[in-house]
Computed example of a mutant assay.
Amino acid sequence: MNNIEYVSLQDLDKNELQKILNKGKVREHLVSHDEFDQASLEDWIAGKVKVDSSKGCKVKGIKVNGSVAGWCGIQFEDEAYELAVVLDEEYWGIGIRVFKEALGWASELGHSHVVLHLFNTRPEYRFLRKMASRVYESTIFGQKYTSYEIKVPYA
């Protein structure tokens, strides 16, 4: 059984996080951006830490069995609270567990719904469509996404 731990992004091994965020398989699913170097990663982490301290938001690093696995959170983007999960491909199998945990955070934060944006090149996820109150195409930073508006349980 995988032990999943949610920690401050500042507490992750930065070299490991940088490797994950720069991997081609991970980048295929993210907003296009230059690869991170040490300085840009520090800036990105500082920005996410600021988001984490914002009302209605929570952003955490993910460790699995003590190893850096990625990050996740609830952040305010494009006029809505977005649920984000970014995992090293080695840990994609825990994605649903992380997703459910983040939905719990959204409930604790008092959100009635969150939006999950997935590149529209990805296949449709039936379980997301079932959960979604609305599924629509969106454009963020010039890239097209399938967006799932998900009702937060217990909100």
Rank of each mutant, 00 (worst) to 15 (best):
I74H: 01
F76M: 13
W44H: 10
K50A: 15
V49S: 13
S53D: 10
A80H: 03
S53E: 15
G70K: 03
G70S: 08
F76W: 15
V64Q: 05
C72H: 00
Q75S: 14
C72K: 02
V64E: 06
K55N: 11
K63A: 07
G73Y: 01
N65I: 06
G73E: 09
I62V: 14
G70W: 02
K50N: 15
I45P: 02
N65P: 09
G66M: 03
V68S: 06
V64T: 10
A69F: 07
E77A: 07
K63E: 14
S54D: 15
V49R: 08
V59F: 12
S67A: 11
W71S: 09
G70P: 13
C57T: 06
K63F: 11
Q75K: 14
K48R: 11
C72Q: 04
V59W: 00
G66P: 05
N65Q: 14
A69W: 01
D78H: 13
V64N: 12
V68D: 08
G56R: 11
E79H: 01
I62Q: 14
E77F: 02
V68E: 04
S54F: 03
V68K: 03
A80Q: 05
I45K: 05
K55P: 00
G47P: 00
F76V: 08
V64M: 05
N65L: 09
I74A: 01
K58E: 15
Q75R: 11
K55Y: 11
G73A: 15
K48V: 00
V49Q: 12
G73Q: 06
K55Q: 12
V49D: 05
G47N: 09
V64P: 10
G56L: 04
V68C: 14
D78E: 15
I74C: 12
E79A: 09
K63I: 09
W44S: 10
A80M: 04
I45W: 00
G70L: 13
K60T: 12
D43L: 07
I45Q: 02
W71T: 13
G47Y: 07
K55I: 08
I45C: 03
V68F: 02
K60M: 12
D43T: 10
G47T: 03
V59D: 02
I45G: 04
K48S: 00
G66W: 00
G66Y: 00
